[in-house]
Design a protein around this nucleic acid. Sequence first.
DNA 1: CCTTGACTTAAAGTTAACTTTAAGTGATAT
DNA 2: ATATCACTTAAAGTTAACTTTAAGTCAAGG
Lengths: 149, 149
Amino acid sequence: MSYTIGQVAEMMGVTPSTLRYYDQEGLLPKVNRVNGIRVFEDSDFAWLRILNCLKNTNMPIKKIKEYVELAKLGDSSLKERYEIIKEQKQNILEQIEQFKYYLREIEFKEWYYETAIKEGTEKNMMEKMKNNPSFDLDEIPKNTKLKNK
Amino acid sequence: MSYTIGQVAEMMGVTPSTLRYYDQEGLLPKVNRVNGIRVFEDSDFAWLRILNCLKNTNMPIKKIKEYVELAKLGDSSLKERYEIIKEQKQNILEQIEQFKYYLREIEFKEWYYETAIKEGTEKNMMEKMKNNPSFDLDEIPKNTKLKNK
DNA sequence: CCTTGACTTAAAGTTAACTTTAAGTGATAT
DNA sequence: ATATCACTTAAAGTTAACTTTAAGTCAAGG
């Protein structure tokens, strides 16, 4: 089965322009053409899946390109590609942990507003907050946004 | 206790320029000045914490600003602020779920490389993959990057 | 035959979130 | 007293990741 750029874009939830941009940046190395028109095959979907995964977990386009270039080298780059994947796995794990932390923080704020709304005012919240077990004065967690070099 | 912009920047893991930029964008509404110099007080830290939380969970600066403007209105905006917090909580939950999904995907790729490296080649991986229980041909999950309007 | 719609390119434009620069102020250390 | 920091502003510059535009090709339907 083969697909047009529009169909693939639809499947991935992006626009055809975005896919053309990825192609231009070298992220779609083995997509065929017929009369100049891109024709996506089922065999391209394994790569589209992993591309989607790397992109949606905040790997920059440039780093994804590095990965693509390594893949083009074949077996000799297996180890390097493995390292990139392990690094990205680590990034994902850290991002999940961060988000779980911020979830607790926002749930505290949710409680804050629920309580204030019941009262009709947030004037007395300073007092109330001391009785909430989530109220503590940790440091501000540092911004640890991943840079992927 | 009071702090300079440099100290606060250090605590938050950003540069002083970034904090000045936030101030310019109206994200630091009640920071005092002495001789034109910003003086952060302990009382500012509650807001710095929530700012940090919203920012690091991908709420755009503009949306954070909206939230700040609502907060300035006092009790009359409690409900609207509550809605923003609930919405952001939802975003965080969705982002965690997405990341968990991509974690499974990348762990599959990790297994792929471990196996290929043992073999010294990825030539036979198509065959091997069929025996891995994680190998399935779901749709490509759509990009559901949150826009926060 | 001609219109419609989906595809093509190269190049310019957009947006968010900073970051840098240039010029200046003011307290502290030598 | 002078050099060195850390602070200040306004404005210009940067970067990533698209997005839009303009001009064109091509196959299918009425």
